[in-house]
Write a protein that binds this DNA or RNA. Structure first.
Length: 507
RNA sequence: GCCCGGUUCGUCUAGUGGUUAGGACGCCAGGUUUUCAACCUGGAGGUCACGGGUUCAAGUCCCGUACCGGGUGCCA
């Protein structure tokens, strides 16, 4: 039985890198008819951010990554919040102490810093708390047993450390990278239990993954260096380790490093799934949803960042991704995020949506603008604009003139379109239009083209300013479809307005 | 510093010893259109990080170097 988990910590909004980890876990579980579990790793009280857990849940729901077990949906292996499992960790860490794999340490943070400082000054290649240095520190190796007992009883703060064995070749296996070998001397006696009574990630994740019967741990590459420790922990408990797969990181579009929260606003693309309001500063960082991205596009973008099916297919539904996904085809190296291609993906998914789906998405935006419009009318607008839109908002930003008369005329376009005698031509055109009874696109096109030819004018001399009068700019859908939709009366008013406007501005 | 991982057009990538190194985004040009977008056609863009091997043959296997990324916390 395949059981995988996504295990974020609620220290802030979920980053799209995290969302991709969740996605790959989800795809893998569905592909293998397994279970997908959400576990909240809230063992760091200092960094806990209120609202972050709900944000994670909302984000997963938005992109449609439904989990089978989790803090809000329950399951047979709960609780799914690590802060609610403290007793479990205590029990298991005691087991490690009893069999010699863990020990007490009483060093203060200052003393630890002193030790590292000392080792740095000695130009020691490694500055670790391990078998070479723990003899100089305050722990249950150096202190007599009764003193350890006394210190604990007195309430002296202590941590529990892993007893990292000396000079051992540790061979671990990763599905994406294969065998990885590490010598234990480069590892340290990691803290398993903090003095605040909370376990560290290292302990909690092993205990939980085992107890929750996780079969595959799929997580970010930043965890690869601690895989040997985790491997040893399984050994210390006498448990069979799950399979591991470490996903490559998502990097900034330019420059160096992994994608971070600041990159988005700086470079004009979102890094968070949903809007996030910082509880301290009140600052709002825009999310994919609010930016106008479709959840299916976000899934598609993320899926192809570090994975590919080996075919030329690039546009996928979630079901196609499930069908084709495999960990073996995950890339080893980090992938730079490309905001331009992200837009393209959104456009592709937008084009694949039905008019009715687009209508549902666009209506709220219209209402937000204070526009009341008939659904049938809006649907027609959508049909005309569909091919030239990247985001749902574009139906408004590129089509507001369907709902209100142009407030102004794009100066650049106007300069090109509205010449000396344009007003006269438009006046005549208005006259002609007012006599046309059948205001259908087809008939308009035929009649107007005839008219232009009879007048011995060029199409562009007539149609470009007409478009300008209608829209306020000169780029848009098929002119005659637009005229039909707007209707005769409105068209005549807009022509009139334009003539007035340009006569006032001196033309 | 030390440890781990990585390295194919600007970007995402195909490629698992024998191909003119293929595709996509973006860019440029042409076609179509009254216009824009979409669409179609074409183009530019890669000394496969570099240097050594192994081999009749290497982007593909091995070693070294460089560079990039990650880790090195009583963070996850």
């Amino acid at each position: 039985m395949v059981r995988v988990r996504f295990a974020p910590s609620p220290t802030g909004p979920l980053h799209i890198g995290g969302l991709r980890t969740a996605l790959f876990n989800y795809l893998f579980s569905r592909k293998n008819n397994g279970k997908f579990i959400l576990r909240i790793e809230d063992t760091d009280q200092q960094r806990y951010v209120p609202g972050a857990e709900q944000y994670i849940i909302d984000s997963l729901n938005w992109v449609g990554l439904k989990y089978d077990e989790g803090p809000d949906v329950g399951g047979d292996f709960g609780p799914y919040r690590q802060s609610e499992r403290l007793d479990i960790y205590k029990k298991y860490v005691q087991q490690l102490i009893d069999n010699g794999w863990a020990y007490y340490a009483f060093d203060t943070p200052e003393e630890l810093e002193q030790m590292r400082q000392r080792l740095r000054e000695q130009k020691s290649p490694v500055q670790l708390y391990n078998h070479l240095t723990r003899g100089d520190m305050k722990n249950s190796f150096t202190l007599p047993e009764h003193e350890v007992k006394q210190l604990i009883e007195k309430g002296t703060p202590y941590v529990i450390r892993f007893n990292m064995p000396a000079n051992q070749e540790i061979v671990v296996y990763d599905i994406i990278r294969g065998e990885v070998k590490v010598n234990s001397d480069t590892l340290d006696d990691k803290i398993l239990f903090k003095s605040d009574g909370f376990p560290t990630y290292h302990l909690a994740n092993i205990v939980d993954d085992h107890l929750m019967q996780i079969s595959h741990v799929i997580r970010g590459e930043e965890w690869l260096p601690s895989l040997p420790l985790h491997w040893l922990l399984y050994k210390a408990f006498g448990w069979e380790p799950p399979k591991f797969a470490h996903l490559p990181l998502i990097l900034k579009p330019t420059g160096k490093g992994k994608l971070s929260k600041r990159d988005g606003d700086k470079m004009g693309f979102p890094v968070y799934p949903l809007d996030w309001k910082d509880p301290n500063t009140g600052e709002i960082i825009r999310g994919y949803r609010e930016w106008g991205y479709l959840p299916e596009a976000v899934v598609n973008i993320l899926a192809l960042l570090g994975w590919n099916p080996g075919t030329d297919q690039e546009i996928f539904t979630i079901d196609e991704l499930i069908e084709q996904f495999s960990l073996e085809r995950v890339q080893k190296h980090g992938a730079r995020f490309d905001p331009e291609k992200a837009k393209w993906f959104n456009q592709q998914h937008l084009k694949r949506k039905s008019d009715d789906e687009l209508l549902e998405l666009f209506m709220p935006i219209l209402e937000n603008q204070g526009i009341k419009a008939e659904r049938d009318y809006v649907k027609r607008v959508i049909q005309l604009l569909k091919e030239r839109v990247e985001f749902i908002e574009d139906f408004w930003t590129k089509g507001s003139y369907f709902f209100e008369r142009p407030k102004d005329y794009d100066p650049k376009a106007a300069k090109k379109a509205w010449k000396q005698n344009t007003s006269e031509i438009m006046l005549e055109l208005k006259d002609f239009l007012s006599q046309i009874q059948d205001f259908s696109s087809k008939n308009l096109e035929e009649q107007l083209k005839n008219w232009v030819e009879q007048k011995q004018l060029s199409f562009s001399k007539v149609f470009t300013p007409l478009r300008l009068a209608i829209q306020g700019n000169t780029a848009g859908p098929h002119l005659f479809d637009m005229l039909e939709l707007l209707g005769k009366q409105e068209v005549l008013i807009r022509i009139d307005n334009a003539i007035k406007h340009f006569s006032q501005s001196g033309k």
